[in-house]
Amino acid sequence: MNVKGQAAVVTGAASGLGRATATALAAAGAKVTLLDLNADKLAAVAEEIGGLAAACDVTDAASVKEAIAKGREAHGPARIAVNCAGVVHGARIVGKEGAMDLGAFSRVIQINLIGTFNVMSQAAADMLALDPLEDGERGVIVNTTSVAAFEGQFGQAAYSASKGGVASLTLPAAREFAPKGVRVMCIAPGIFETPMFGGLPQDVLDALLAKTLYPKRLGKPEEYAELVLSICGNRMLNGTVIRLDGAIRLEPR
């Protein structure tokens, strides 16, 4: 799909991967609706790139419905949806204080997995009703998992479970939407320059980067955004997870 002139929805767009993706799509000529819980930062990014800010809670069906409707009214139904909203929580399943707090575990699942499903399903409902483009394509959805979905470390049970669910959504969603020409892809980033990793101590970051084969640095959000644009442009990319990780393979600790 040529993204120029197409409507797009990006979650987590106030910072990190989402912000870079919204910026890249806008630069390529897409009409972007930016979704995030942080209304102030979201408005600033939207103004900067010429997009539309639609503050919302991805875990709330009514909130997402309202945000997508706002984008639809301004730009028409979105043919592109990119889910970047996510949080991380570090805790052992059983720590010194006992079992992990169930509320903390549930919050990560709610935002990372259920939030992704919520936006994906509501965006797809619009896409499936659109007129087909070249090759019968109607839309493309890109979700964000993590290498932790496959190699979760000590203390990553909640995060790994949530991202494993996102990865597992890819193929069944792609199979369901394929007859109507809507593709579903998933990206599994490694260690990237995002607020999620910004608070890690330098020694922890150094240890993670030491496991990266090449390049031995943090990934740049713009590199994630480049892959999103490539996925949009290549109709043969469907139903799979792409690792974007410099060949990192996480060890237990």
Rank of each mutant, 00 (worst) to 15 (best):
R175K: 15
T145L: 00
V94W: 13
V58Y: 10
V182A: 06
M127E: 13
N83H: 09
G139K: 08
V88R: 13
F150P: 10
V182L: 04
Q153Y: 04
G164W: 12
D101G: 00
P172T: 14
A129M: 11
I109T: 05
H89K: 11
S121M: 09
R138C: 00
I93V: 15
S63M: 00
A78C: 10
K163M: 03
S121T: 12
S106F: 01
G103Q: 13
R72E: 13
A81I: 00
M185E: 09
C186W: 00
A67S: 04
D131T: 07
H75S: 05
K180R: 15
M100Q: 14
I109D: 10
F105E: 11
D60E: 14
E97M: 02
K65V: 00
L102W: 10
C84W: 09
G152C: 04
A167E: 13
A174C: 04
L169H: 07
A161D: 12
M100K: 09
A161I: 04
M185I: 05
A69K: 15
E73N: 07
P132I: 04
E176Y: 05
S63R: 12
A61E: 15
V184L: 00
D131V: 00
A129Q: 15
G86F: 03
C56K: 03
V166E: 13
G164E: 13
A85I: 05
N112E: 08
G86M: 03
V166Q: 14
R79W: 02
G98W: 03
R72L: 00
Q110L: 05
A157Y: 03
Q110F: 00
L133M: 14
L113W: 08
D135W: 08
E176H: 12
E134K: 12
L133Q: 15
Q122N: 07
F154H: 08
P172C: 07
A62D: 15
V140T: 11
S121R: 15
R79V: 02
P172W: 12
A178E: 12
M127V: 05
K70W: 02
I111H: 01
Q156P: 01
I68W: 03
A178I: 03
G139R: 06
A157H: 02
G165T: 06
D131G: 05
A148R: 02
E176N: 08
E134A: 13
G115D: 06
V182Y: 05
S63L: 01
K65A: 13
A167R: 14
C186L: 02
G181L: 00
A124I: 02
K65C: 01
